[in-house]
C-alpha cells in the first residue's frame, strides 16, 4: 500500500463517525421531513396517506399562518435594521473614546451571553401593568400614561422585539468594533490632515470600509429575527403568541402545529415555507450587497 493510500484511509477512518452524524442527524432528517410534508403524518393517528401539496395549501390558507408570517416579517424588517444602525452608532462612539472602552463593551455583551429565557422573564416582569411593572411605575412617576406593552396587540410585538434588539446588540457592537479596528489609522489621519471634517471621514472612509461587515450582520440578524421563538414563547401569556396572535412568529406557529397539535406533516410544510423564505431573503441580500460593495 502506498503512503498516500494509507493516509487517505486514515482520513476516512477519522471522518467516518462524523459523516454518519451529518448524514443521520442533518441531511437524513431534512430529506425525511421533505417527504413527510407531503403526507398526513400525525402522531395522533396511525396514518400515513400521501396528500400531495395539500399540507402546503392548508398552511398557506390558514389565516393564523398568514398572521404569523406577517409578524415574522415585521420582526425581521424592523429588528435587523434597528439593531445594526444602533450597534454601528455605539461602536463608532466607543471607538472615539479613550478610557472605559473595555468596560462599556463588556456591559453591552452581557445580554447576549445570558439565557434568552431568563432575560425574557425579567423583561416580562418589567413590562407588567401598574402597580407591578417597573417601566409603568417609571412612566407614572414622570406623569406619563401607562402602557399595556405585552398585553396590547398593537404594542406587544414591538415590546418583544425590543428585547430581541437588546440581546443582539452586544453581538453586533463587538463585530463592528473589530471591523473598525482593522481600518488603517494612517488613512484616517491623512484625511484629517487634508482638512476633511469628521463627518466627511465617517462618510467617505469609515462607513464604506465597514460595508462588508454590515452586509454580514444584515444577513445574520435577518436570519436571527426570522427565526425568533424563545422571547415570544416566554413573554406571551401561556406561550400562545398572543394577545390575538399579534406576537406569534412563524417558528412558534411551527412549534404549536407540531408539538401541541401533533400535526407533523402540516408543521413540516410550514417549516419548509419558512426555510424557503430565509433562503430567498439571504440570496436577495447577497445580491443587493454584492452590487453595493463590489468586492
Amino acid at each position: 500500500m502506498t503512503l498516500a493510500k494509507k493516509r487517505a484511509i486514515t482520513a476516512y477512518v477519522f471522518l467516518a463517525l462524523p459523516l454518519v452524524f451529518f448524514i443521520g442527524v442533518r441531511f437524513g432528517p431534512m430529506l425525511y421531513m421533505m417527504g413527510r410534508s407531503l403526507t398526513d403524518w400525525s402522531l395522533l393517528r396511525k396514518s400515513n396517506q400521501f396528500l400531495g401539496l395539500a399540507n402546503f395549501a392548508a398552511v398557506l390558507g390558514d389565516p393564523v399562518f398568514g398572521k404569523a408570517m406577517a409578524n415574522t416579517a415585521r420582526y425581521a424588517l424592523v429588528g435587523a435594521p434597528i439593531v445594526i444602525a444602533l450597534s454601528l452608532a455605539v461602536a463608532l462612539l466607543l471607538n472615539g473614546i479613550a478610557r472605559g472602552k473595555g468596560l462599556f463593551r463588556l456591559i453591552y455583551v452581557l445580554p447576549y451571553i445570558t439565557p434568552v429565557v431568563a432575560v425574557s422573564w425579567v423583561w416580562r416582569w418589567m413590562y407588567q401593568s401598574p402597580p407591578m411593572g417597573l417601566i409603568n411605575r417609571l412612566l407614572g412617576a414622570l406623569g406619563l400614561p401607562a402602557h399595556a406593552f405585552i398585553n396590547n396587540p398593537k404594542e406587544a410585538l414591538y415590546s418583544i422585539l425590543g428585547v430581541g434588539i437588546w440581546v443582539e446588540m452586544g453581538y453586533c457592537v463587538t463585530i463592528f468594533l473589530a471591523g473598525i479596528q482593522t481600518i488603517p489609522q494612517d488613512c484616517i489621519e491623512a484625511a484629517r490632515i487634508d482638512g476633511a471634517s469628521e463627518s466627511r471621514v465617517l462618510r467617505s472612509i469609515i462607513l464604506p470600509l465597514l460595508m462588508p461587515i454590515t452586509f454580514f450582520l444584515a444577513i445574520m440578524e435577518g436570519i436571527q429575527f426570522l427565526r425568533i421563538f424563545t422571547p415570544v414563547y416566554n413573554m406571551s401569556s401561556q406561550a400562545m403568541g398572543g394577545p390575538l396572535d399579534s406576537t406569534k412568529s412563524a417558528a412558534l406557529y411551527i412549534y404549536q402545529t407540531a408539538f401541541t397539535k401533533f400535526e407533523m406533516g402540516r408543521a413540516a410544510s410550514a417549516s419548509l415555507i419558512l426555510f424557503a423564505v430565509i433562503m430567498v431573503v439571504t440570496l436577495v441580500q447577497v445580491r443587493f450587497f454584492d452590487k453595493k460593495t463590489n468586492y
Partner: peptide
C-alpha cells in the same frame, strides 16, 4: 386607581 387613572387594585 393611581393618579393617572391606572387600575392598581
Amino acid at each position: 386607581y393611581d393618579a393617572q387613572g391606572n387600575l392598581v387594585q
